[in-house]
C-alpha cells in the first residue's frame, strides 16, 4: 500500500492551532476534576448502588472526552462514529448479560 500524502500548509504563525490547544487543555481539566471527584466520592459516599452508578456515569463521561476530543472522533464523519459506537453498544450488553450470569452462579452456590 503506497503511503498517502497530505498537503499541509507550512504555517509559521504562532497563533495557528491556538483554539485547538485551548480545547486540549480544557479537556485535561475536565478529566482531572472528574478523577478528583471520584476520589472524593470513594471516601464519602457509602458503598451501594448509588455509588457504583455515579462511578459508571463518571467513567462514561471521561471516556466520552478522551475518545471525542483526544482521539478526535467527535469531529469525524457520522459513518466512522457509528462504526466505532455500534460494536461498543454490543459490548455493553455483553457486560450486563454476564453480570446477571455471575449473579445466577452466586445464587446457585451460596443462595
Amino acid at each position: 500500500m503506497a503511503e498517502v500524502h497530505h498537503h499541509h500548509v507550512h504555517n509559521q504563525d504562532p497563533e495557528a492551532g491556538a483554539e485547538q490547544r485551548k480545547a486540549i487543555w480544557k479537556t485535561f481539566w475536565i478529566l482531572l476534576i472528574i478523577t478528583s471527584l471520584e476520589f472524593l466520592i470513594a471516601f464519602t459516599v457509602p458503598h451501594g448502588v448509588l455509588k457504583v452508578s455515579i462511578f459508571i456515569i463518571m467513567t462514561i463521561v471521561k471516556a466520552f472526552y478522551i475518545v471525542g476530543e483526544f482521539m478526535h472522533l467527535k469531529h469525524e464523519t457520522k459513518t466512522l462514529i457509528w462504526s466505532i459506537l455500534v460494536p461498543v453498544i454490543f459490548v455493553a450488553w455483553l457486560i450486563l448479560a454476564l453480570l446477571l450470569e455471575g449473579n445466577a452462579i452466586f445464587e446457585a452456590i451460596f443462595g
Binding site: 454476564l98 449473579n103 452462579i105 452466586f106
Partner: peptide
C-alpha cells in the same frame, strides 16, 4: 467481563 462475572459469583 470475565472479572465482573467472577466478582458477582463470589460473596
Amino acid at each position: 467481563v470475565a472479572y465482573g462475572t467472577a466478582r458477582f459469583s463470589f460473596p
